[in-house]
Each structure stands twice: as C-alpha cells, then as structure tokens.
C-alpha cells in the first residue's frame, strides 16, 4: 500500500454527508480545498495588512502576484478585460496554491482530479459564453466566423472554429489534471524505488541513490510545473475572456 502510486489520489470520507441520495461528504479533497483557500487567502490578507508604502518581502510577493496576473490579463484582453481580474486572479491563486500544497508528502492534490479542473474550465467557458452573449448578443457568434474567409470555405472554417471552441474546456481541464496526475505518479514511483531498493541490504542502499537523486530532481521539476500550469490556466482564461470581449477577431 505504501508503494501504490495511485493511493495518493484516493478520496477518503472524513465527515459523511448525504443529501438526496448524493454523496456530499466532507472528504480529504474538501479539506485540502479549504486548506488551499485558507492558505492563499490568509497569505494575501496578512501580508498586506500593514499596507506598507515600502513593502516588506512578503507584501511584495502579494503585490507581485497581483501585478503579474493584472499585466497578463491586460496584455491578453485589454483594459476592458480588467473587470474579470478578480476571477482570473482567484483562479490563478487557487490552482497555484492547490498545486504547490499537493507537493507536500501525504498531502492531497486537489487539482489531480479531473472533475475539479473540468469544473474550473467550465466556469471559465461559461463566463465567456454568458458575458459574450450579454455584451454582443448574437454578434458573439462572429467569433466562429473569422474575417476575410472566402464564402466557399466558410462552412468548413465555422465547423472547425466551433469544434475548437467546444474542445477548449476539455483541453484546459485535461492539461492541468494530467500534468498533476502524471507528475505525482512519477514522483511516487521513483520514491518507491528508494524504499524498496534499500530493503535489499547494502547493494540495494547503494543502488537507491540514483532514484533518490531522480526524486529530488523531479520534485524541483514539479514545483516548476505547479507554477507553470497555474500560469497556463490563467493565460488561457485571459485569452478566452478576450474572445468574449472582442469576438470579431
């Protein structure tokens, strides 16, 4: 059981709750969602509480994350997109902190479950679609008709655009989910080599140095991936929001 790379993704019910035949139990996943939100919220809240004109180190971390996401969204969607800033910033911080928390041994990774990433992706696409129709009415459908396409090709292009639009929530969610899942499995497998090899006596202990080094290296890589995936998620969200604001390409 200690060596099972899949075990870390098991959902364990901590407080069973059942409403209308559906299982809404408070699980380890729920606990880490709460932890993610609490850690991110507390960090942002406490580090900025002194409102220093000259920021302390931690305050400048909060400010940097703010300005990082703000400039990302402004670059992608223009100043009109800034009304979605709280949304994009929340997504970025949630995914980032969930990814990073998941790197701790024995911690559960919220974003390693497809349903969570898919829900977040649907939230993004839902926001884009609702805002797009609210803002532009049927003009939002121009998103699927690029300008300057010959009439003969138009049906084909529209078909491709529609398919690509519909695949967005899937690619957005699968990318994050698969990265987290694969990274954690790899890490667990290599770490498992270390323990099972070192049980073989002196030769095994000497041989386990290699997977140990790999584990350390992959942990470093996973920190990068955790950040990168949060960034990619936020960048793509910004670009989809840009589509909602300026559907006419």
């Amino acid at each position: 059981m200690a060596n099972d790379p899949i075990h870390q993704f098991q959902i364990a019910k901590w407080i069973p709750i059942e409403i209308g035949g559906l299982d809404f139990s408070f699980t380890n996943s729920s606990a880490f969602m709460v932890a993610t939100v609490a850690a991110a919220g507390a960090f942002l809240f406490l580090t900025t509480s002194s409102r220093g004109l000259v920021p302390s180190r931690l305050q400048s971390v909060s400010e940097m994350s703010y300005e990082f996401v703000a400039s990302m969204l402004r670059d992608a969607a223009g100043s009109q997109g800034m009304k979605f800033f709280p949304f994009v910033f929340s997504l970025f911080m949630f995914v980032l902190v969930a990814n990073l928390l998941g790197l701790f041994p024995y911690f559960f990774t919220v974003t390693s479950h497809i349903i969570v990433t898919f829900a977040l992706a649907l939230l993004v696409i839902g926001t884009v679609v609702v805002y797009g129709f609210m803002k532009h009415g049927l003009g939002f459908l121009k998103l699927f008709v690029p300008q300057g396409v010959p009439a003969v090709l138009a049906p084909l292009v529209v078909l491709i655009e529609v398919i690509s639009f519909l695949s967005r929530p899937i690619s957005l969610s699968v990318r994050l989910f698969a990265n987290m899942l694969a990274g954690h499995i790899t890490l667990k497998v290599f770490a498992g080599f270390v323990t099972s090899l070192s049980a073989l006596g002196f030769v095994g202990v000497a041989g386990s140095i290699l997977p140990l080094l790999m584990t350390v290296a992959i942990t470093g890589l996973e920190v990068l991936v955790a950040f990168l995936q949060a960034y990619v998620f936020a960048v793509l969200t910004s670009m989809y929001i840009n589509d909602a604001i300026h559907p006419g390409h």
Partner: peptide
C-alpha cells in the same frame, strides 16, 4: 480515483 464518479458530487459541492 480521479474517474470515480461517486466522488464527483462531493468534490463539486466543496469546490
């Protein structure tokens, strides 16, 4: 586990 749909309602609610 990630494809176990019996855990989906709980995850969606808490998310």
């Amino acid at each position: 586990p990630p494809f176990d749909s019996s855990t989906f309602p709980s995850q969606l609610l808490w998310l």
